[in-house]
């Protein structure tokens, strides 16, 4: 019990430390980058302001103090749950984010699940009929699609399905003024979802395919085939079992990767989610908003890599059983 307490205590400590370091870094880098934070608060009015007015405005927002002081104040408020207001939206940061986080979770979560299920199926199919016609065509198509950058892919999808065919809406999460019924939201989701999935699909499907084929060359497969099992049973019953833990681990580590893709896609489709916010806040020096968004992304990254590790330990019996035969080398030689 006590050992477990210490274990989690250590984990918590290292987590807090990484978040702290991340916040310092983002705080400094954001402020060192060129740009005018007042522009996002006052909009175009800032161009007409006199030097004194600017001074006053800066003081009001607390931007003319030394960097360390600014950070100290921010940290003091942040630990009490007050992350300040967004310069652009003139609203509490959490409110701004809260209004949009659902949209991103919907797009990102749905995209994530679909992506990995499809990749597994596609990879398995390609491994099952490796080197046949279908496999070759899919490999070629997949490589072609995966080298198209996401923003370009999104534009391509908009051009084909919205502009030319007029089948699907090109932007937003729902039609303005209609409140957003289920079918309306779904229609708006299709194109961004396709862009998120297509952008990453082949990368993971190809990984599954190759890992499975690599596994097929392992020695134990010879024994399994000597038992009299066919290719499908070998792949399903044996190879997949050895590939899945790695795949689950990769899924967990890929959360930030897919999230990054979602951000880009959101921006292109003007989808009201976190991605658009990140882009705007970085561009217009909306410091408070940027801080919270960066920290949220950081937390997601840390948690997903922890989960990836845990998944590996849970599903691979060897990881936990392998001896921790730590050996003190004596530092001899050359």
């Amino acid at each position: 019990m006590k050992r477990r307490f210490i274990f989690y205590g250590k984990k918590l400590l290292s987590f807090t430390a990484s978040i702290f370091i991340l916040s310092v870094l983002v705080f400094c880098i954001a402020r060192l980058a060129p740009g005018d934070p007042l522009a996002s608060y006052y909009g175009t009015r800032v161009e007409k302001m006199s030097v004194e007015e600017r001074e006053k405005a800066m003081e009001r927002l607390g931007l003319n103090e030394p960097l360390a002081m600014q950070y100290g104040k921010w940290l003091g408020h942040a630990v009490q749950g007050d992350f300040g207001i967004s310069y652009k939206y003139k609203q509490d940061v959490m409110e701004v984010i809260g209004a949009r986080v659902g949209n991103t979770l919907l797009l990102g979560g749905l995209g994530f699940v679909c992506l990995f299920v499809l990749a597994l199926l596609l990879g398995f199919f390609c491994a099952y009929c490796a080197d046949c016609f279908a496999d070759r065509v899919i490999c070629m198509l997949g490589t072609a699609v995966s080298v198209i950058p996401e923003f370009w892919l999104s534009l391509l999808l908009i051009f084909i399905f919205s502009v030319s065919l007029r089948l699907l809406p090109s932007s937003g999460a729902y039609t303005l003024g209609e409140g957003g019924g289920f079918s309306d939201r779904l229609l708006h989701l299709i194109l961004p979802l396709c862009a998120v999935i297509l952008g990453h699909l082949w990368y993971y499907a190809y990984l599954v395919r190759n890992r499975l084929l690599e596994e097929m060359r392992a020695d134990y497969v010879l024994l399994v085939r000597a038992k009299g099992l066919d290719r499908r049973a070998v792949l399903l019953g044996h190879c997949l079992k050895n590939v899945l833990p790695t795949y689950l681990g990769i899924m967990a580590i890929s959360v930030p990767h897919v999230l990054g893709g979602t951000y880009i896609v959101e921006t292109v489709f003007s989808y009201p989610g976190i991605g658009t916010l990140v882009y705007e806040s970085a561009r217009y020096k909306d410091y408070n908003l940027l801080m919270v968004l960066a920290l949220l992304s950081g937390i997601v990254v840390i948690f997903s890599s922890r989960i990836g590790q845990a998944v590996g330990e849970r599903f691979d019996p060897r990881v936990t059983a392998a001896g921790t035969g730590r050996e003190s080398m004596q530092g001899w030689g050359g």
């Binding site: 392992a218 020695d219 134990y220 010879l222 024994l223 399994v224 000597a226 044996h238 079992k241 050895n242 833990p245 691979d316 019996p317 060897r318």
Partner: peptide, 16 residues
Amino acid sequence: VSMVFQDPMTALNPAM
């Protein structure tokens, strides 16, 4: 026909 292989360390599926 059955077969026994040379290297017992790699002949069994490690995950079963």
